[in-house]
């Protein structure tokens, strides 16, 4: 069981949207508790790969997948896997902040509500909200605004809230799909700091277009091209001594 050092392991993962093959036998491993960045030019399949880990790709209907994905040692395509439980333990943050059109408070307890059949104790909920907001550094700003609409917050607060609402569910893995691309420089810095604080407690996979960001926040980095995983190593190694010529060309900015 040496695999348990890894939260995510895929083997020969291929994926088609209809006729189009978006992933070509990708074998990828993400180390437990680290931040792994997926980089590569547009259309290289990095977002598709990310969206495999909580199976939200299947929303589109015409998706075919072959190969294996193991999360925390469990094949997520097994018959007995509950999508609901899977998505509870694998949180996702999207490119555009997408808080639900509810209050700040309701956004954070939303996950708890949908995952527990019984009514929840109000003080426990209050505590969960305070904890989650504290973890993402929003508590001071939002403690008096818990009843205001989440959609009326500033974009960076919205994005942090989107991270905060995952935490009460105690996920093992957090997937981030270009979480800073809608944010300004200062907000990006804050979210990056937040990611580094959350690392260790959670395994984080981040898709990014921004190589500097990958350098700043990730411990490991995987470079993808045309649906293939070209190279995956420690971030310093990948950026300083890339093994593959294509990786070298991409990080030098010759294409992409």
């Amino acid at each position: 069981m040496s695999d348990l050092a890894y939260s995510i392991v895929t083997r020969d993962l291929s994926l088609w949207y209809g006729e189009f093959q978006a992933l070509r036998s990708v074998s990828f491993k993400a180390r437990n508790g680290l931040i792994t960045a997926l980089i590569g030019p547009s259309g290289c399949g990095k977002t598709t790969l990310l969206r495999c880990f909580n199976r939200v790709n299947e929303r589109y209907g015409n998706v075919t997948t072959t190969g294996e994905i193991r999360l925390l040692g469990k094949n997520i395509y097994d018959e007995d896997v509950s999508l609901i439980e899977l998505r509870k333990s694998v949180g996702m943050v999207f490119q555009r902040p997408n808080p639900l059109p509810l209050t700040v408070y309701e956004n954070i307890v939303f996950g708890l509500h949908i995952h527990s059949p019984a009514r929840l104790n109000a003080s426990a909920l209050d505590e969960a909200v305070e904890q989650a907001l504290t973890d993402v550094g929003l508590w001071m700003d939002l403690k008096d605004k818990q009843k205001s609409k989440a959609t009326s917050l500033s974009l960076d607060q919205q994005q942090k809230l989107c991270i905060a609402r995952l935490l009460p569910l105690k996920p093992e893995i957090i997937l981030m799909d270009e979480p800073c691309s809608a944010l300004d420089v200062e907000a990006t810095r804050q979210v990056e700091e937040l990611m580094l604080e959350l690392a260790g407690r959670y395994t984080i996979i981040i898709v990014t277009h921004n190589m500097a960001q990958a350098k700043r926040v990730s411990h490991e980095c995987a470079f993808m091209l045309m649906g293939e995983l070209i190279e995956h190593s420690r971030t310093e190694d990948l950026f300083i001594r890339p093994l593959d010529k294509r990786t070298a060309e991409y990080i030098e900015g010759r294409f992409g």
Partner: peptide, 9 residues
């Protein structure tokens, strides 16, 4: 909104 809800399980 749908994506958010689905991804939350």
């Amino acid at each position: 909104y749908r994506e958010a809800a689905v991804a939350l399980g």
